[in-house]
Write a protein that binds this DNA or RNA. Structure first.
Lengths: 170, 170
DNA sequence: AGTTTATGTCAGCCTTGTTGACATTCCAAG
DNA sequence: CTTGGAATGTCAACAAGGCTGACATAAACT
């Protein structure tokens, strides 16, 4: 595995797509593509004194309105202190509303305000535009493969979060 | 574009894979998968008081031994000051060697030491293991699609950097 | 009543981005 | 040959956003 070689062809099946060189290209593609993936929203956010952390919060609050802080924590995979700092500024700036839970008053349910939704749209339009262009260039079969590989790359926990969101889709 | 709808079917071609919902799933898949992508090396690095930035530097120095600081800067897309801090610790810890350029003494050419190569192997074995497992689960066609979409998602500049590295592959 | 759970806050640390200032080296125009 | 600008790299200081730990509060559960 650390011998710098590859898996070659085994058992009559062609596994040349699993050589170390192929894997390294996949790793580097992932690295560069992720930069492209975040570049457009980052540019918008920089003007607003917000960062990627704010984008993520706004995205998932929009995706699951009324979600609790704890729920968001699990999706984002950060500490509550870290998330709280971001939420505090978003609430102070009037982009997010925090409502005390009806049945369980310890919980805070998070919603975007109109301003919050406006920002979310701006950010996600920019990000979708690039994704759309990439998808269109690549074609439907490539897109299906793209999604298959990404899903296989997630941890089980993330896969569950992802699937839950996917199935709640409009 | 901000109307919450999709591209539907246009001109007789099926473009259902370009709906806003599909794009959003692609965006979220990218987000969760990237976490998986970095999770294994991050765990190793945490024990060593290094971060992701050190991993990236070590990866690309290994990939292109003798590269200059400036060259690395372009690949990584950070400021030279930021890279320099990382390089300084790597050099101090004896993982990277910085050699003054022969023809141009302003340049520093970067090489991994044996220890540096050992760390690189550990990190990249972990990352490749996950990538290999994802590739194998997904199959060669999905992998091809994965790469096609990622390449289409890069900026032109990154695409050039990526292609240059790819073509210099062993 | 006592324990657990959900949330928020304060303080302080680390990594890794940023800008600004500066030193060294090279090269080319005068 | 000198001098000024460009290229390259280093040092200092700051900000964002991760992290841990400690603690307060309120509600829910037993």
């Amino acid at each position: 595995m650390a011998d710098g070689r590859n898996s070659g062809t085994i058992g009559g099946e062609n596994l040349l797509f699993l050589t170390d060189e192929q894997l390294r290209q996949g790793i580097e593609a992932m690295f560069f593509a992720y930069r492209g993936f975040t570049a457009d929203p980052d540019r918008i956010l920089a003007d607003l004194a917000y960062g990627r952390a704010h984008h993520r919060a706004v995205h998932f609050i929009n995706r699951a309105p009324g979600t609790t802080v704890n729920n968001l924590l699990n999706i984002l995979g950060v500490t509550k202190q870290s998330l709280n700092r971001v939420l505090r500024t978003l609430i102070a700036d009037g982009l997010v509303e925090s409502r005390v839970g009806k049945t369980d008053k310890r919980e805070r349910h998070l919603h975007l305000t109109d301003d919050g939704r406006a920002l979310e749209s701006r950010l996600s339009d920019a990000q979708r535009a690039r994704m759309r262009s990439a998808f269109r260039d690549a074609g439907p079969d490539a897109v299906a493969g793209f999604r298959t590989v990404l899903e296989a790359m997630m941890d089980n926990e993330m896969q569950r979060a992802y699937t839950r969101l996917k199935e709640s889709g409009s």
